[in-house]
């Protein structure tokens, strides 16, 4: 580039000198070679300009959209962005692992709110997947649950597909658990218990209490069956 500039400066300087010393123009004969050289130069320079135009940044000032109202986010937008993101990178793996841990904490809290597990039992219930009927959710949040066939298949498609599959099922299962919890009465400041009469009761015992007892009984029965199977073995 510097050489081209030097040639250009020299040519211009020579041109000025020729204006004063006309005789110097005679050094160059307007022969075919000279004219062809000038033509080649013009063509090369023209092509350079054309190439610059091709890659040039065409700018225009943006005016924005002041007619639109300010939009606020929906709670969970950031999670959706993570869930739907495709690909495989170190950052995405880290974020997915953190999200998985977060989802597990939410699951434990939801089960505590549902009230059929004691504080010490919640973590074990999530580990063994006994908190839900959904095998995918049980596998995704648990640690002792083998992956179901659907998850194995998605693992072949990529970890992002497997992650998405697990999250969707886990969130659905948590929604169901949360719906159970919302069916439970929650003592308010006055100790009042909603829906403690009418349809909320079976005999003198509220339905949610019966539900909790049934679930706890079913778990104990399952545990006893497992223990019996071990003994037989």
């Amino acid at each position: 580039m510097r050489a081209v500039a030097a040639v250009g400066v020299a040519a211009v300087a020579f041109g000025f000198v020729v204006v004063v010393q006309r005789g110097l123009a005679g050094l160059f004969d307007l022969t075919y070679v000279f004219v062809t050289g000038a033509g080649v130069l013009a063509l090369v320079q023209g092509l350079r300009y054309a190439n610059d135009a091709r890659t040039a940044d065409h700018r225009a000032i943006e005016t924005g959209d002041p007619e639109d109202r300010y939009e606020v986010p929906v709670p969970g937008d950031a999670d959706d962005e993570l869930i739907t993101r495709r690909g495989y990178s170190r950052a995405s793996i880290k974020r997915r692992r953190e999200f998985h841990q977060h989802l597990r904490r939410v699951a434990e809290e939801t089960l505590r709110a549902r009230g059929d597990y004691g504080d010490g039992e919640v973590s074990a219930a999530v580990d063994d997947g006994g908190w839900t009927d959904d095998p995918v959710a049980a596998w995704f949040l648990g640690s002792d649950v083998p992956p179901p066939p659907g998850a194995r298949l998605r693992r072949l498609l990529g970890t992002d597909a497997e992650f998405r599959y697990g999250v969707v099922h886990a969130v659905d299962a948590l929604s169901a658990a949360r719906a159970d919890a919302d069916g439970l009465p929650v003592g308010d400041a006055d100790g009042a218990v909603p829906d403690a009469t009418g349809d909320g009761r079976v005999g003198s015992v509220p339905r949610h209490v019966l539900g909790g007892v049934r679930r706890a009984g079913r778990r104990r029965l399952d545990a006893a069956r497992d223990a019996l199977a071990e003994v037989r073995r």
Partner: peptide, 20 residues
């Protein structure tokens, strides 16, 4: 909260847990 996507549903669950 909304419940049209997994992320939105999860935010709803977290909020309900806070209420509880």
């Amino acid at each position: 909260t909304a419940d049209d996507t997994p992320g939105h549903r999860l935010a709803g669950i977290e909020r309900a847990n806070r209420v509880s």
